[in-house]
Every structure is written in C-alpha cells, then in structure tokens.
Nucleic acid binder design. Structure first.
Length: 573
DNA sequence: GCCGTTTTCGGCCCGACTGTTTTCAGTCG
C-alpha cells in the first residue's frame, strides 16, 4: 500500500501538536510543521522519490533526521516516535486546542489543574463553573469554552471560494463607503484565489482606524465581535464566516497588502530575505533601522528585498521566490487568453440550454469554438445519449456550423470510462467526433491500482483526447477516488493525451499541485467549464484562477489556441 | 529539528489584541 504525502504530513503535524503540548522547543515544533508542509506540497509522491533513490534531505526543511523518519513511515506505515509521545499526551488536549483562544499551553494547564481526561470532562468543568478556579482563567474564557463546546463542531471549516465571493464582494463594497476609507481590498487566501477560504481578510487604508472599525463592526450581517482594536478587528458574520479587518495608513498599503495576502510561509520567507539584507519587513513597510524605505506599494516592498513583484496566486513558498530571483517567474495564463471551451452539455443530456443557446452564449464570450460533450449512454441519470442520438446531434451541429462566422461548434461527447477501462461508445462513433472527453462517473471505490489502470486503459484508445475531471473530487464534499495522478500524467504524456482542469467551482479538478505536476511533465491542460447552462460558461474564471495557482502559462493550456492548433495537438499517432 | 559565502553552533518572522493581570503571556494571523 503506497504511503501518500498527505499521510506523512498528517503524522508530522500530529507530532508537532503533541510536542507543543509537551512544551518542547518551539523551533523543533516548527521544524515538524515546516516538514509537513514541504511533504504536502510536493507534486511527486515522496514514497516514489525514495524508491527512485533520491535523497529526501535535499528537500527544503527536511534534514537527516526527518528524512529518516519519512523513510520509516514509507516502510512501515507508521512512526514509532509518534506512538511514543502520543502515549504521554491525552488526545483530548489536542482536541481542546481547536477551541479558538485556547492554545497548547492553556489547554495543558486546564487539563492538568482540573485532572480532566476528555472533552466531555472539559464541558462538565465549564458547565459547573470550575474553569475560573484555575489560575490565569477568568469568567470570559469559561463562557467562551462553554459556548464553543455547546456548538459542538469546532473543526476548521473552509468554504468554497465562489460562495465566499457572495459575502465578500457586497461587504467590501459597503466598507468602501465608510467615512475615512481610502482603499479597501480583500487579501488572504481569497486574493491568492485558493479554492476554499477559512475566513476573509480585508485590508483598509485610512487614518482613523478606531472609527472605521467601529463602523465595520456594525455591519448588518455581523453576528459576533471577537476582537475590536484600533487597527484590527475580528467578527463572525451570521453565515458563520469569520472576517478580519485591518486598517493601516496609506503609506503602508503595499506592505500591509503583502503581509495580509500571505501565505504565511511566503511572508516568513520574505522577512528572512529582509533580515539577510539587514532590513526589517513588517506590515508597515520595509525598514532600515528606524527609517521606512518602502511600503506604499507591493512592487517597492518586493524590490527592497531584491525581487520582482510576485502574483498572489504563486505566493505559497513553493519555489516562487527562487523563480523570482532567477527571473524565471511564469507568465501566468489569464482569462483573456482563452479562445474556447472544450467541455459543455446541452438539453440533449443533463444541460439546461439547447445547442443553439450554448453556441450563442459562447460567441458572446468572444470564443472561437465550443465543444458539445454530452454524456454517453451509461449515464442514465444524467440523460446519457444513445449512439443514434449522438449521430443526430452531429448532423445538427453540421447544420448550425454552416451559419456561423468565425465560430464553430465542435462535435464531442463526454464518454464514460467503464469499470474495465473500455469506453461507453463504439470506436466507429468516437471516430466521427472532433474530440473525445473520457471521464469516470461510476465505481469510485476501486483500489488505487485498479482505478489508475482503468483510466490509463481508456487513454490507450487513440480516440480519447482529454480525460475529464481526472480525480473525481468535489471540493469540500467528496474526496478524490484513489488514483495515482503522477501515473496518469506520465501515461498521458506517453500517449499524447491531455488532462482537464474542470473549472466548475465544485470540482476544480485537477487541483493546483497536480496542474503543476502536469506542466512539469509537459502535459497540456484543457481548462474547461463542463457547463450545464449558458451561465455555466462563466465558470472559466475559476479554472483560470486554479490554473494560475498551478503555475500554468498560456502555452500550457490547450484552449488558449485557435481550433486549428488545438486539433493538431489532439491528433494522436 | 533545520540551516549555513557571518557554517558545525546559535540562531530561527513580526505585531495586535485579549484576558488576566498590574506588566505580560498566550494566541492568532
């Protein structure tokens, strides 16, 4: 059973949690967290890297010790060191640190002082008013613990970016109207266009922070005010979304935007660079001693630490700083580069609009082409088409195309990959299409080898152009089916087949890390909306956001090309 | 536990806010 990067990272994070509670050296704790991050962010499986004889200690933040521990995990599936220390710290203390405002020190203090053994014990202690008896704890903390435990679920919940937009955009517009607000912008993972956000980080330029924050906390949808100071405030909206507001003087706008956009790892790397240059970087600017030498714009902040401006989508400390240093930052793909959409449905299967309506909507977007890829016959619940119905659709597309000027509908289908890797339509029919998208819609529970073999077998069919939503995951709802994405990428490269980045914000499949892996293997990506309505074509921007996070340039994306160029790339041996 | 053209020890990002305290530790981002 291959050990996945995420399993190794989870073990290291767990070690860090436990060490922190045991009050181990905080830099040692950080080392485990950094290592977890490094492993999680690798586009390749570190188990495979080990097998290939690579030296893991060459990875950032992985030294001799942690490389050996990774090898141990890969070999045995577990880490004895974790078992050793987990025996000494009750899991309940780790769980208690997830209560906002309770960290490792205070959780440990509570459990020790009151002799607690479980979260239930903690709940009882809070209900019975025993928390206040512990030194350093008062009535507010006790009430907070009671409230949080009563609500039950204090696991981190992130919401999809497109949903966050519905709350964020009206809120930031409203903030811009507040007296004294000169600029307002949403930073954080929202600005980095991560597929989900845990909270909203809003930055404001203005002088009278206290007044602005006071007004902010009286926004209509604010349900709870967690903190409220002169420069920052944290509230929770009725919808459960946490919002952090930060107010800075205009002269610090760029430095604050940089700081508040993150990621944390990118910021830390930037501050180290500042230190190396005997400068200090914080949210107010870049400082040489007491003197601020930059801060108004992000460009000048980066310039003072010896770097060109870096696009927010790349700020994850996944090599963007090194790339910037070498002048090798990618010119990321943009929405304007897109010339067409290679995956869409109509009323013929489970779409909401007709061929003609979809074609018109695509033309209004300025596209040169739109591929109609309705479902195949096995997809009964999604109104999959029979071979005869596809034949009829081919004729109708031919007729419609005669009337178009500078635009064409492409004959396609989203053919099901059956359990054994065979396709749901005959080769003869598939041969009549301009392109074929092949997707998995059933048997998600196959073992990894079987699932991967299945998809590779589908790629063996030279009529298959693109694998649709290659991992089947639904953001926040359904984990990817067990599949070795690297094997898919390599197989696609060998066969001249390409992979989809499904732009539907529920899917965003491939994810950012996998997109980057595909790019590194020179496998082109089709950013496709899988639109089931004319409005669905508008999801292209979400795919672009995700592709940018995966370092994709226009050249890495199939549908930044005219149809002639795309069709040449789709032609297989 | 990691890291290094100030290397094999002594550093390790920086600041705001809260609750509990009387000057600050803990937590958070």
């Amino acid at each position: 059973m291959p050990v996945h990067n995420t399993e190794i990272a989870t073990i290291f994070d767990h070690v860090a949690d436990l060490l922190e509670i045991r009050e181990a050296n905080r830099f040692r704790v950080r080392a485990y967290r950094n290592a977890a991050r490094t492993v999680r962010d690798q586009s390749r499986s570190v188990a495979d890297m080990l097998e290939d004889g690579e030296d893991l200690s060459e990875l950032p933040d992985i030294g001799e010790d942690l490389a050996a521990k990774i090898a141990e995990i890969v070999r045995t599936g577990s880490l004895p060191f974790l078992d050793e220390i987990s025996g000494e710290v009750p899991e309940a203390i780790v769980a208690a640190t997830r209560i906002p405002g309770i960290g490792p020190k205070r959780a440990r203090a509570l459990f020790d002082a009151l002799g607690l053994g479980s979260i239930d014990d903690l709940r009882k202690a809070a209900d019975e008013g025993r928390i206040v008896e512990v030194e350093g704890f008062g009535p507010k903390t006790q009430a907070k613990i009671r409230d949080e435990l009563a609500r039950g679920d204090f696991a981190e919940h992130r919401i999809r970016l497109d949903i966050a937009e519905d709350f964020a955009e009206p809120l930031v517009e409203w903030i811009r109207q507040i007296d004294g607000v000169k600029k307002a912008m949403i930073a954080g993972s929202y600005r980095r266009r991560k597929e989900t956000v845990g909270d909203l980080d809003i930055l404001v330029a203005g002088e009278d922070g206290a007044a602005i924050i006071d007004r902010f906390t009286r926004y209509d949808e604010v349900a709870d005010i967690a903190s409220k100071g002169k420069t920052r405030s944290t509230v929770t909206l009725r919808a459960g979304l946490q919002v952090d507001l930060r107010v800075v003087p205009e002269a610090s706008w760029g430095a604050a935007l940089h700081y508040f956009t993150g990621s944390k790892a990118h910021n830390i790397a930037g501050r180290r660079r500042a230190q190396d240059r005997d400068l200090k970087l914080n949210e107010y600017g870049v400082f040489d001693g007491e003197k601020r030498i930059a801060g108004a714009t992000e460009e000048e902040v980066y310039d003072k630490i010896g770097l060109p401006w870096i696009a927010p989508a790349l700020r994850e400390n996944r090599g963007e700083i090194e790339a910037a240093e070498e002048g090798a930052l990618p010119r990321l793909v943009a929405l304007d580069d897109i010339k067409g959409d290679l995956h869409a449905h109509t009323t013929a299967s489970d779409g909401k609009n007709t061929l003609r309506e979809m074609a018109q909507a695509a033309q209004e977007r300025g596209y040169e082409y739109l591929a109609i890829s309705d479902h195949s016959k096995s997809q009964r619940v999604a109104g999959g088409l029979s071979e005869d119905e596809i034949e009829a659709q081919i004729d109708e597309i031919d007729r419609l195309n005669e009337a178009f000027d500078g635009f064409r509908l492409l004959k396609s289908c989203e053919v099901d990959i059956l359990e054994d890797g065979a396709l749901d339509f005959s080769d003869a029919l598939l041969g009549k299409l301009d392109l074929v998208v092949a997707s998995v819609h059933s048997k998600f529970d196959l073992a990894e080898d079987a699932q991967t073999d299945r998809i590779v077998r589908a790629m063996d069919n030279p009529r298959v152009s693109i694998i649709g939503h290659p991992t089947g995951r639904l953001v926040g709802e359904r984990r990817p089916y067990a599949v070795d994405v690297e094997r898919l990428v390599v197989a696609a490269r060998q066969r001249g087949c390409w992979l989809e980045l499904n732009a539907d914000p529920h899917r965003l499949d491939l994810n950012d890390v996998n997109c980057r892996m595909a790019k590194e293997h020179e496998v082109k990506i089709a950013i496709s909306t899988d639109a089931h309505s004319t409005g669905g074509l508008g999801n292209m921007r979400h795919g672009i956001d995700q592709g940018r996070r995966g370092w994709l340039c226009a050249a890495d994306v199939l549908n930044t090309r005219s149809w002639n160029a795309v069709s040449r790339l789709l032609r297989r041996g």
